[in-house]
Amino acid sequence: MHAKSLRPYLYILPAFVFLFFFTYYPAGFAFYRSFFHWNTSFIQPEFAGLYNYRQLLQSRRFWQVVTNTVVYSFSFIAASVLLALFLATQIDRVKRGGSLYKAAFFYPTMIPMAAAAMIWMFMYLPDYGLINYYLRRLGFSSVGWLNDRSIALFSVTMVGIWKYTGYYMILFLAGLRNVPDELIDAAHIEGANGRQRLLKISLPLISSHLFFILIIAIINALEAVDQIYIMTQGGPSNSTNLIVYFIYQNGFRFWDMGLASALTALLVVSLLLIVSTLFLTLGRKVYYEV
């Protein structure tokens, strides 16, 4: 009898072991280590209280990274989610070529971000780049897409939008497929125009998809790092340094694991706070089909 009541837990155990050692434990461990001096010169980590956090709060670099990450996240999320919704509604309308359009927008999901970043880096090159070539032909002067500190973050954001929009579009299309045609037709007969049909019928019906896509986009925004590593290394003058790259810099370039742990703890807490807040507020309002 006793063995039987343990049985369900045995099924969960293998997955749980990996979850524990590579998700929960590291999150907790980063939090714990954030209270220590911990770098290569300290053989044994030494308790430091809030030292690492004080270091961060006083550092201009840290605040610049926070600002960059917030700006990147908002512009990336707004642009990719709205564009994805737009594309999905348009593809939903057309009768022919749907799968061709889908492939054209979705294929970046198949391209590794590392390769995508290389491609874009070369398209952004000041002299030999494709984009400046056309700008010059149109009579504009060349732009330092990745060299100009006031533009670099924008250039990096474009890569993220290009890479993820198609994926979000596919998720929106899955939602739109569940909206019954009769409902749309009925609204049409009642005289609702295209915008009303989208805002009053389709959108509320796919609100659970919209909510879910928003959550994925937030996570995708905050974990962005591949393109930074390849394209800019956080520069010029820190203008494209995002939170995960900053963690990497402190941990693996400056070997200050204590500071990197404090940053990790802040990132994990932010992720949990943002997602759970959304679940408790917006999440309760969205429509779930049964």
């Binding site: 979850l19 996570i219 994990v268 949990l272």
Partner: peptide, 26 residues
């Protein structure tokens, strides 16, 4: 069961990329 299932879903909120420092140590 529900609590455990919730704990599983927490993994979705903490992508591996965000915890590279402690995982590297492990």
């Amino acid at each position: 069961r529900d609590l455990l299932f919730f704990l599983f879903l927490v993994q979705l909120m903490i992508p591996a990329t965000s915890i590279i420092i402690p995982n590297y140590q492990t």
